[in-house]
Simulated assay, not measured.
Amino acid sequence: MLYMIVFAFTVYCIVMSVRTIFIPNAIKGKIVSLENFLYLAFVYITILIGFGLIYILLETKGYEVMVEAYPLPDDSFFDRFVTYIYFSAVTLFSVGYGDIAPIGIGRIIAMIEALIGYTIPAAFVAKAFIEKEH
């Protein structure tokens, strides 16, 4: 039961974070500002940690999510979580390094995360310019 609550809350946080990019509210001040940079950074951090939590929650439920080329000899929960955060960051910001590969349901989740990672900068820039013109 706790697993489902944490999973649902994590997905909710990711959706709400991505939603803030697409809802109509004005970008404050200049297009390039510390406030806008921090806003974008917090959106990325929320999504990065959220997907890391989704991966680790699925693994704790017995789903195979990824395969590592260089696994650590001591895989504590914290080590696994850090690995999933790393995998989430590499998926969100690039196409991956190849040291970790998603498998099973992890492939679908990684595709969704990569799509979000590519969409956020474009949506943010479009939002900034559209709001500045009004």
Rank of each mutant, 00 (worst) to 15 (best):
44 Y>T: 00
60 T>N: 12
65 V>E: 00
49 I>Q: 10
64 E>H: 12
53 L>G: 00
64 E>F: 12
77 F>V: 05
78 F>P: 02
71 P>Q: 08
59 E>F: 09
41 A>I: 02
67 V>M: 13
75 D>L: 14
47 I>L: 10
44 Y>G: 00
72 L>V: 06
59 E>V: 15
65 V>M: 15
50 G>Q: 07
49 I>S: 10
51 F>R: 09
62 G>I: 03
72 L>M: 10
41 A>W: 09
67 V>R: 14
80 R>S: 04
52 G>E: 11
75 D>I: 11
59 E>I: 14
51 F>V: 14
71 P>C: 04
79 D>S: 15
49 I>G: 05
61 K>L: 14
71 P>V: 13
56 I>D: 03
64 E>N: 13
61 K>M: 14
72 L>K: 10
80 R>K: 14
67 V>E: 13
51 F>S: 03
68 E>R: 15
43 V>D: 01
78 F>K: 01
52 G>I: 06
42 F>H: 01
41 A>M: 06
46 T>E: 02
42 F>I: 00
53 L>V: 08
76 S>P: 05
70 Y>N: 08
79 D>L: 08
60 T>V: 12
68 E>M: 13
68 E>A: 15
51 F>N: 05
74 D>Y: 11
79 D>K: 10
51 F>G: 03
55 Y>C: 01
43 V>R: 03
48 L>M: 13
78 F>W: 11
59 E>K: 15
51 F>L: 09
40 L>A: 15
59 E>P: 06
55 Y>I: 01
62 G>R: 10
71 P>Y: 05
54 I>A: 06
48 L>W: 15
59 E>M: 15
77 F>A: 13
68 E>F: 12
62 G>T: 01
62 G>H: 12
72 L>A: 10
45 I>P: 01
68 E>K: 13
65 V>Y: 02
62 G>F: 08
79 D>W: 09
72 L>I: 04
68 E>C: 08
50 G>I: 07
50 G>N: 05
65 V>A: 02
76 S>L: 07
